[in-house]
């Protein structure tokens, strides 16, 4: 199970990094999302992988799963969700204002006055 989980984290992270390097806003957003999935699974596995073990106290349990990483993942998911929403809106705004979806806004020549006067 450890090998399976680590391979999946690795593949997700690699895909995420590849997409982030694509330099167009949509792949970058997808890449960031994949990377945040990878980090969520990674955080979760840092509490050691256990099957069928409860995280909160139960009278029958002989072993427990570490509850702290689960709480961390929850926080990380919420934050990543908010950030993704924000970056999508920003990407749309950039697409609208710069005329294309390149992260550098290429293909758009700013005129001198725009360059100087913002």
């Amino acid at each position: 199970m450890e090998i399976l989980v680590s391979i999946s984290i690795g593949v997700m992270a690699a895909c995420g990094i590849y997409l982030i390097l694509r330099a167009h806003t949509f792949p970058v957003v997808v890449g960031l999302t994949l990377l945040s999935y990878a980090v969520n699974v990674f955080l979760f596995s840092m509490g050691r992988l256990k099957v069928g073990a409860p995280a909160v106290i139960s009278p029958e349990a002989v072993t427990y799963a570490d509850p702290l990483p689960q709480a961390l993942v929850l926080t990380a998911i919420v934050i990543a969700f908010a950030m993704t929403a924000f970056v999508i809106v920003l990407a749309l705004k950039a697409r609208d204002e710069l005329g294309n979806d390149h992260v550098d806004g290429k293909g758009e020549q700013l005129t001198d006055t725009e360059e100087a006067g913002l």
Binding site: I20, T25, V28, L32, L35, S36, V39, F42, L43, M46, G47, L68, P69, L72, A76, I79, A80, M83, F86, V87, L90, A91, K93, A94, E97, L98, V103, D104, G105, E108, L110, E114, E115, L118
Partner: peptide
């Protein structure tokens, strides 16, 4: 336009930084 473009870089770079932070914190934990 320039503000949007600079802002886009700023946001993406920092989001990437946040992800790396989580990897580091997870590994430390």
């Amino acid at each position: 336009k320039k503000r949007t473009r600079a802002g886009l870089h700023y946001v993406i770079v920092n989001l990437l930084g946040s992800t790396l932070y989580l990897f580091a914190v997870g590994a430390l934990y």
